[in-house]
Amino acid sequence: MTWNLKNGPLLGAALMLVVLLAAPHMFYPVFLMKVLCFALFACAFNLLLGYVGLLSFGHAAFFGSAGYITAHMVKALNFDPLAGILVGVMVSSLLGLVIGWLAIRRSGIYFAMITLGFAQVIFFLSLQLKFTGGEDGIQGVPRGMLFGLVDLTDTMSMYYFVLAIFLCGFWLIYRTINSPFGQVLKAIRENEPRARSLGYDTDRFKLMAFVISAALSGLAGGTKALVFQLASLTDVNWHMSGEVVLMTLLGGMGTIFGPAIGALLVVTLNNYLAGFGSWVTIIIGAIFVSCVLAFRRGIVGEILEKVRTWPTRHKT
C-alpha cells in the first residue's frame, strides 16, 4: 500500500475512534471526559487560530458562559441535559456574534487584546450576576436523564454521551475546514487583501468562523459543566483562555488532530500537578516559551513536516 498523506486524517480518525471507544475500560472515565471537553474546546479554538489566523485571547468567555447557562438551565429550570447544553450553545453563539462583530474591526495583536477585554467583561458579569453564584459558582448540577431515558449519573453512559458530543463537534469542524467555506478561510489566513480583491467579503467570513468557533467552545463548556456538575469562575478566567491557546500551540495549530493531542497533554499535566500549587502555572508558562522558541509547528505539525520532507531527503 502506498502511503499517502491524504489518507492521514481518515486513518487518524479511525484510530481515534477505536481508542476512544475502548479507553473508558482502561482509564479513569471522568479524566477522559475532561480531556474530550477540552479537546473539543481546543479544536474549536483552532478553527479560528489555525485556519483563519485570528488569535482570540478571550475564548474562555464562550466556554465558561455556556457552562453557567447549561448549569442554570439544568439545575434551576429542570431542563433535559441535552436541551440545557443547546441553550448554552445558543448563548455562547450570540456572545460570539456580538464580540466577534466588534473584534474583527481590528486584526493581529489588537484582535487578541480586544477579545481579552471582552472576556474580562464576561468574567465580571459571572462574578456579579445573581444566578451565577459569585465565587461559589453553580454547584451540584444534576446530570439528569437524557431524553428521560438514559441515566447520565451512570459514569459509562455519561462517557458515551460526551464522546458522541465530541465526535459531532469534531466532525463539524472537519467538515467546515474541508468545505469551500474552509478554503476561503485559509485564503484569508494566507493573504487577506488578496482574498478581498477576489471578491470575498472577508469580514463576513471571519465573523462566521468566529461564531462557529464560539458555538463549539460553548458546546464543550456546557458539556464540561455537566460532567463535573459545576460551573465556576475558573472556566471564564483569562487563564483558561491562555490554556486553550497553549493546547493548540503545543499540539499544532492548523492541524486537525493537534489541538486534541495538546488538550490531552495539558489536562494530564494539570491533573498530575494539581497538588503542587503554582508549579502548574510555571510549567505551563515554560511550555509556552519553549513552544514559541523551539517548535512552533507543535507536536503534530512537526511530525507532519518530517513525514512530508522524508522522501525528498532520502532521494537526494
Binding site: 488569535l55 495583536i109 487578541a112 503554582s278 508549579w279 510555571i282 508558562g285 509556552f288 513552544c291
Partner: peptide
C-alpha cells in the same frame, strides 16, 4: 529570535513569561 515571524508569536512568548513570573512569585 522572533522578529522575522508573525507578531503573534511575540505575544505568545511574553504571555508564557508572564505566567512563569507570576507562578514563581506565587510559589
Amino acid at each position: 529570535r522572533l522578529y522575522h515571524l508573525d507578531h503573534l508569536y511575540g505575544l505568545l512568548l511574553t504571555f508564557g513569561l508572564a505566567l512563569i513570573l507570576e507562578g514563581v512569585f506565587r510559589q
